[in-house]
Simulated assay, not measured.
Amino acid sequence: MIRRVALLCLALLLPLVAAGQARAAGYRYWSFWDRDGSAWTYATQGPSTARPSDGAVQGFRFAVSEDSGDADQPRGAADFGAICAHTPRQDGTKRVALVIDFGTPADAPAGEKPPGAARTACARVPEDATTAEALATVAKPLRYDTNALLCAIAGYPRRGCGEQVSDKATGAPSAAPATRNDGGGPSVGLIAGGAAVVALGAAAVWQARRRRA
Rank of each mutant, 00 (worst) to 15 (best):
Q90G: 00
Q90N: 08
D91M: 06
G92R: 06
G92C: 10
K94C: 11
R95T: 09
R95Q: 12
R95E: 11
A97F: 06
A97C: 11
L98N: 02
L98F: 06
V99E: 08
F102V: 05
G103H: 07
G103V: 06
G103F: 05
G103T: 11
G103Y: 06
T104Q: 13
T104M: 03
T104N: 11
T104V: 06
P105E: 09
P105F: 04
A106W: 02
D107N: 14
A108K: 08
A108H: 10
A110C: 00
A110L: 09
G111M: 04
E112P: 02
K113S: 15
P114K: 01
P115S: 08
G116Y: 07
A117M: 05
A117W: 00
A118M: 11
R119Y: 00
R119W: 01
T120Q: 15
T120G: 11
T120D: 08
A121M: 07
C122E: 11
C122G: 10
C122A: 08
A123F: 11
A123L: 09
R124W: 00
R124T: 14
V125D: 05
P126I: 09
E127K: 07
D128P: 00
T131R: 07
E133H: 08
E133I: 00
E133A: 14
E133F: 01
E133K: 12
A134W: 09
A134Y: 10
L135I: 06
A136W: 00
A136L: 04
A136R: 10
A136V: 00
A136D: 15
T137S: 05
T137G: 01
V138H: 04
A139Y: 04
A139L: 04
A139W: 07
K140R: 14
K140P: 05
K140W: 05
P141Q: 07
Y144N: 12
Y144V: 10
Y144L: 11
D145K: 10
D145M: 10
T146A: 15
N147M: 03
N147C: 00
A148W: 09
A148S: 12
L149A: 13
L150W: 09
C151V: 05
C151G: 06
A152V: 00
A152Q: 02
A152T: 02
A152L: 01
I153N: 03
I153Y: 03
A154M: 03
A154P: 01
Y156N: 03
Y156H: 02
P157C: 03
G160D: 11
C161E: 08
C161I: 07
G162Q: 12
G162H: 14
Q164L: 01
Q164P: 09
Q164F: 02
Q164N: 06
V165G: 04
V165T: 15
S166R: 13
K168A: 15
T170L: 04
G171S: 00
A172T: 11
P173V: 06
A175T: 14
P177W: 05
P177T: 07
P177R: 03
A178M: 04
A178L: 06
A178R: 15
T179F: 10
N181D: 15
N181H: 12
N181P: 04
N181G: 14
D182G: 08
G183R: 12
G183E: 13
G184A: 13
G185L: 13
G185F: 12
P186A: 15
S187K: 02
S187T: 14
S187M: 04
V188C: 01
G189V: 07
G189R: 09
I191Y: 10
I191E: 08
A192D: 12
G194I: 05
G194C: 07
G194S: 08
G194Y: 04
A195M: 12
A196Y: 07
A196F: 13
V197G: 02
